[in-house]
């Protein structure tokens, strides 16, 4: 699976010369990138690099100030996250959009509740919901003991898994993950990376936003480096080693200078 030959595949998402300004602040400048189905595209950047703005444009929260946004080759403008969702772009934000006090299965189907019965008096299909929720979570390799337990009592990794499984189940063609591993420990991060791999194997275009080059390199097919609102580097998996990625991300020479400084 190579991400270099893109001539035959229509990218799931494409940004062309996209800029975003907030008043006098230029948050993003001339961003051009594409995301292919069945690949993991990593967007790497340090704090303040413009990752959040980029993600919000992709998710439909913000609209680009200039430039074009293409979904499956067609130019689109989204007014809200709901629009983006309708086009198959699901975003798992850092807050995960789960309601802590509600049970796992109710969260799983929140906003897309399955119903049955006659029109007008349609009730929740709770049995279907519970069963589907359990199967979908198992397919992601996660076994929740009790679907009735409030989501707030799950661990960070499990909550992340519920949010990802939900996005995948509801037909996401593009899955945008906002720093899914940033708050997790080593093992839990590994688990989440595994979910990312599984989503990719299902043919989903995954956009993995992170500031951790190690995590990115483990699952990524294409890497974009964002720095101070502009794309500074673009790599594909076969053209970059982890060390190069770390180095590029940290600003190469700067890191060496820092290492030198710390040695003294």
């Amino acid at each position: 699976m190579t991400a270099t030959a893109t001539t035959t595949v229509t990218p799931a998402l494409q940004l062309k010369d996209v800029s975003k300004t907030f008043g006098s602040v230029i948050a993003l400048r001339d961003i051009t990138l594409h995301v292919d189905p069945g690949t993991v595209t990593c967007v790497l950047g340090d704090n303040g690099a413009g990752k959040s703005t980029l993600i919000k444009i992709l998710a439909g929260v913000h609209q680009p100030s200039t430039g074009t946004f293409l979904v499956k080759g067609k130019e689109r403008t989204f007014g809200s996250p709901r629009d983006a969702l309708g086009a198959g772009i699901a975003t798992v934000f850092q807050d995960l959009a789960t309601v802590p006090l509600m049970s796992v299965w109710r969260n799983f189907f929140l906003g897309n509740e399955p119903r049955r019965g006659l029109p007008g008096i349609r009730m929740l299909d709770t049995q279907f919901a519970r069963q589907t929720c359990r199967t979908e979570l198992l397919n992601m390799g996660i076994d929740i003991r009790d679907l009735e337990q409030p989501v707030g009592t799950l661990s960070g990794g499990e909550r992340q898994a519920v949010a990802i499984a939900r996005a995948v189940y509801f037909g996401a063609e593009v899955l945008i993950l906002d720093e899914p591993t940033s708050a997790l420990g080593v093992r839990q991060s590994g688990v989440v990376l595994k979910y990312i791999r599984q989503a990719k194997e299902r043919g989903i275009a995954v956009v993995f936003i992170t500031h951790n080059p190690h995590h990115a390199h483990m699952v990524g097919d294409r890497f974009y480096l964002l720095n101070r609102g502009t794309l500074t580097n673009e790599f594909t998996r076969d053209t970059v080693t982890r060390e190069e990625l770390v180095k590029a991300m940290a600003g190469g020479a700067e890191l060496e200078a820092l290492a030198h400084e710390l040695k003294q």
């Binding site: 996250p81 709901r82 969702l85 807050d95 309601v99 929140l110 906003g111 897309n112």
Partner: peptide
């Protein structure tokens, strides 16, 4: 009531 923001983001 539990989390209006999360509800909005899931399309409620």
């Amino acid at each position: 009531g539990g989390d209006a923001n999360a509800a909005r983001n899931t399309g409620v």
